[in-house]
């Protein structure tokens, strides 16, 4: 009798631990599959109709239009992509936001241009997905 009580107690503990583990797994699975994620960010001088970069580079000339192609994977009724472009010591160059409703794999392009030419130096692009930093790219502008 005493032994069976011990076994029952052990079984209860095992069941409790197992149920807690199952709850944890369920939560992780939900978080992992829900929504959309950024899979790639590329920079270049032009984009095609599919919004992919056709002239890829990370060194630009002062009069270039700078394109960033952001690849996303997953589905969501609404997601917010934000591109934050900054110069050398963090000076803000531009910040653009685009709301997307991705169904599967999609690409979004952001571009910036400066009619009087970009100052030479180091720049940074940070891409945010739903206000969470997703990827950062650095690039240079060098004199013509």
């Amino acid at each position: 009798m005493h032994l069976s009580k011990k076994i029952q107690l052990s079984l209860c503990v095992v069941l409790l631990v197992a149920s807690a583990a199952c709850r944890g797994n369920g939560a992780n699975t939900t978080a992992g599959t829900a929504g959309v994620r950024v899979t790639d960010v590329t920079l270049g001088r032009s984009v095609g109709g599919d919004k992919a970069i056709t002239d890829r580079t990370d060194t630009f000339k002062p009069n270039d239009t700078i394109y960033a192609s952001v690849a996303t994977d997953g589905a969501a009724p609404s997601a917010i992509l934000r591109a934050k472009w900054s110069f050398e010591d963090g000076q803000l160059v531009n910040e653009s936001t685009r709301t997307i409703a991705p169904v599967n794999k999609e690409r979004t392009e952001f571009h910036i241009a400066k009619p009087d030419g970009w100052p030479a130096g180091k720049y940074k692009l940070e891409v945010f997905l739903n206000d969470q930093s997703a990827e950062t790219k650095s690039f240079d502008v060098r004199g013509s």
Partner: peptide, 16 residues
């Protein structure tokens, strides 16, 4: 001196 980025033109588009 700080660079002037006040005249930067920006845009975006999506495949969808």
């Amino acid at each position: 001196p700080k660079a002037d980025f006040s005249n930067v033109q920006a845009g975006s588009s999506t495949t969808a």
